[in-house]
Amino acid sequence: MIPETLKTSLQARVASAITAREAAVDVMKELQAHYGWLTDEAVQEAAALLGLSPLQVEELATFYEMIYRRPVGKKVIHVCDSISCWCADCDKIIQYLKDKLGVGLGGTTADGMFTLVPCCCMGMCGDSPAMSVGGVPYGRLTPELVDEILEAERHKP
């Protein structure tokens, strides 16, 4: 169940859209922010808000890279593996992250803090290798910098 205030604001978002569907991505993102991932319940709530069937929401939810239809950690680490980061040896950073967090790609740390997933080009090519943690982008990664970032992110709200 989502809080009444969130529901009201989402209803307003849907009402302001030219067609209800247009607001679908916004609604899914907001519900994901609330639940941490887009739960089955959230899909059904989104459907109700948008006047769609749950399947119709699922068709969209499963298309997008940044909508999570499975439980994730408190913060999701998207580490870029596209060409510019590859040039900057992102493979090493990805391996370092795997080792440090003790998870494979797609895995969530035992403490439920981080989920590690590879992602497509983040537009951080000038600062490769790059990753984002909980939506915050970080570039020019080195193992030492990764340590610092994860430590800081662990304690940030």
């Binding site: 749950p54 399947l55 068709e59 499963t62 298309f63």
Partner: peptide, 19 residues
């Protein structure tokens, strides 16, 4: 019909129901 459709993308497209 609104209870059957296509989900996912790329080689993962899946034709079925929400549940």
């Amino acid at each position: 019909g609104t209870d059957f459709g296509v989900m996912g993308s790329a080689g993962r497209v899946y034709f079925g129901r929400f549940q």
